[in-house]
Nucleic acid binder design. Sequence first.
DNA 1: ATTGATCGTCAGTAGAACTGACGATCAGCG
DNA 2: CGCTGATCGTCAGTTCTACTGACGATCAAT
Lengths: 147, 147
Amino acid sequence: MTSEADLGPRLSRRLAYLLKRAMVDLDTLHEQHLRPFGITARELAVLLFLDGREPESQQQAAAHLGVDRTTMVGLLDALEGKDLVARRPDVEDRRRNVIVLTDTGQATLRKAMRASDAAERQLLAELDDREAAQLRELLKRVTSGRA
Amino acid sequence: MTSEADLGPRLSRRLAYLLKRAMVDLDTLHEQHLRPFGITARELAVLLFLDGREPESQQQAAAHLGVDRTTMVGLLDALEGKDLVARRPDVEDRRRNVIVLTDTGQATLRKAMRASDAAERQLLAELDDREAAQLRELLKRVTSGRA
DNA sequence: ATTGATCGTCAGTAGAACTGACGATCAGCG
DNA sequence: CGCTGATCGTCAGTTCTACTGACGATCAAT
């Protein structure tokens, strides 16, 4: 792949380049580490989001996760097919589905999160703990500014 | 859009979330700031790459930029259509095109780079200069580790 | 009861990137 | 020289993803 020295300093210091690069690398690492659990990083994000929340409708969950409502259908189809989440009719509003984690989903979430932690650690292998926390904090402030 | 508080701390601290969020935001900002120049962030990256390098073939440039050779064709078609780059036959190897910046391309590059700088500044508005440099440095070390 | 909006779903579409192939050209080898 | 295999830029076709628009079902408001 691209080695930073080949690009000269100009492009390799642009934020867009650095961010994309980090994201692609993290995607690759996640793919490797999550393969044993048969889920993608994105599906893990859904599981993580559903856990520790009051049950929510598909569309609420979609909005919070920033994905289109029609995309969420397929995402949940996949997760439901793996028995990780369940759609249950909302008793208060029968248009809605309430999405809940199954027991299998809970267990998979716990294990997959450890794998994801490992992927993150591998991405940040060059940094010590203090620097890793610093990077996380800076990114958090950057994104939270725009809510 | 998604407000960080809504997600709870779990998802909003994951690196994948933070990186993607930052990238999407930066993309949006780039789109706004680059609109006057009629180029995308990606095209700017190509211009920036071509500038300050010995003229190179399409495929070499594509490899360095990490895009597919067939994708580079369309990318250059667009840039050539805007008179920002020119394909010239390589005298030493007539299979190849040498890609060069036109004068217009040079001028556009300079102006667009200032716009891109502004986009980056806006993305990092929450950080002071020292922190912004720190973030850049940490990201650089993260990515350069994997060359 | 009627109107307008929202829910989940699905078909169709649009865009981006890749695969595989093509003619043209090059390098190596006899 | 001539042949063979590889590389260059290009293009057609495929794949993948996300979106638009529509649908029946359901809700809320009047």
